[in-house]
Write a protein that binds this DNA or RNA. Structure first.
Lengths: 291, 291
DNA sequence: AGTAATATGAAACAAGTGTTGCTTCGCGTG
DNA sequence: CACGCGAAGCAACACTTGTTTCATATTACT
């Protein structure tokens, strides 16, 4: 009688009873259910980092006679449009749900806005400039700290080129003392514009650093002293300014920088990975759920 | 300049130039475009009442190298949710611009994904739980630090309810010592899952705290011990996992929490604002460009 | 510590995949 | 009436598919 359950539900329900490799496979199916019907089992297994045999075993573990059973089931699900397309149904939401929907829809729209051709060109140009820099100093005060830190963190996995102008005791800006010609500054600043960040950016500018600015207006304080200006929308139906589009910009920059030196990025990542694994930083196995 | 039109459009456009059998095949593809990706070509040919060879010829007639080209194209279309496609405005990009566009489009799509009704309900439920908490501890290790910090920062403008489990000298987790029943934990964790964060979350759980988790899979390590689970996609065409959707989730939560106590939020904001202005934290005028 | 039980990947398997070359068919033209 | 020519099916092709088998690790339990 309990048969209307979806593939994902069954995978989740039985997840804890699976052997490790099968859990890896199951996790992949849960996270990419569409791919069950859209690609071959062997390809899927390769992406999941699992032997093809494991996929067959997983299918049989779920009670199916084989993997093709799963495929047919998922194909039927997709045909019914339950894949993703359940949009724009009349939405008899509660008040809070309506608000979340508004917020998220606006964020999605804002991020989509960034794909305008001129914006793309600005991003590409900024990335090109940053990729040539000897060092990249990263600056983001107050709310923009999140973006600055994230950019620095990601880049630090690739190598040693970024310096984050922040730190305990207010000693963050000190790193600028070692700035040299050929270095660049990535500064993030949205309204209300933190004075400290602006002063530091202006100072860096006087030292001859090139400036890439992520900010919320073409006439924001940072705009005047930026060599490359990336404007991101921050409006939101909610209480606060949004930093999601700024985060998207930052991630786009990271993607470009990694791509511009693919080999170097890979090498750096591998070195990071080796150390992090050696230190047991990451959980390796998918742990059982506590009973 | 590649393929400004969808498969169906191209089929219709060239329909009249096709030989009879090929038209039968084409009609079937036009009427059941999904099946191109969801079943084998031979099956499809059988249903259309056409020889398999005709299908191959049809594909090549359209300029594709073979039928599998069509299959991949359709699979991609289905993956994107098919229904509404802001696709393929002629984009004669340079390579880097094409990559940025892909990245940003995928991010926008992911954020849009979060507006599914079930997701909205989860977010609303999580926010409700958090709004009732006496205190909210915020936890995000490594890459997730950006999200955790941002949530804490925004909430700290409203009042004193959040504690960020991080800090210099590794003393971050200490704040948990003062946790009491009725407190909650907001934990953020995406793959690769940082072990430290997971342990801390598990520990908080044993102390009786309710847990809201933002993570990237229904079977992520955090999922098992979460009372409220918010799943955000992290895939990206670029090198790295994306945190933009997680940021969007966090901002949605903030918006709801502020809204749930509008008066309190306003009062808190005013107090923050007063102090920050008194200290000259924010730049008031737009400075002229130096020199 | 030793043994039974289980989990796993490599390789072998038959069945099915999309493609291609060849043949046949139908039909209009010289 | 040959003739040529495109269309369509058949059958063999090389390849990939999902599955199974089996030997080897790995794990769990006295």
């Amino acid at each position: 009688m309990t048969e209307p359950s979806t593939l994902q539900d069954r995978l989740i329900a039985q997840f804890d009873a699976m052997p490790p490799q099968m859990q890896i496979a199951a996790k992949h199916l849960i996270d990419h259910p569409q791919d069950v019907a859209l690609m071959s089992m062997r390809d899927l297994a390769r992406r999941a980092g699992v032997s093809p045999a494991t996929m067959t075993r997983l299918a049989q573990f779920l009670g199916a006679s084989g993997y093709e059973d799963l495929r047919h089931e998922q194909a039927e699900t997709i045909r019914r449009g339950e894949g993703f397309a359940a949009r724009a149904l009349a939405t008899p939401h509660s008040a809070p749900e309506a608000l979340v929907q508004q917020v998220l829809e606006e964020l999605a729209r804002h991020v989509a806005t960034l794909t305008q051709p001129e914006t793309l060109a600005s991003i590409a140009a900024a990335a090109r400039a940053l990729s040539k820099a000897r060092r990249i100093f990263v600056l983001g005060a107050r709310s923009c700290h999140a973006i600055a830190w994230h950019f620095h963190y990601v880049m630090s996995l690739l190598g040693e080129r970024t310096r984050h102008l922040d730190g305990p005791g207010g000693t963050g800006p000190d790193a600028l003392m070692r700035a040299q010609p050929g270095d660049m500054l990535l500064a993030i600043s949205v309204s209300p514009y933190a004075a400290a960040g602006l002063e530091l950016a202006a100072h860096a500018r006087t030292q001859g650093l090139g400036v890439v600015a992520i900010t919320d207006s073409a006439v924001a304080p940072l705009a005047g002293l930026a060599d490359h200006l990336l404007v991101c929308p921050t409006a939101s139906p909610g209480f606060f300014h949004s930093l999601t589009p700024a985060m998207a910009l930052s991630e786009a920059l990271c993607a470009l920088l990694a791509e511009s030196d693919r080999a170097g990025a890979l090498a750096g990542l591998e070195r990071s990975d080796a150390q992090l694994r050696a230190l047991g930083t990451y959980a390796t196995a998918i742990p059982r759920r506590p009973g």
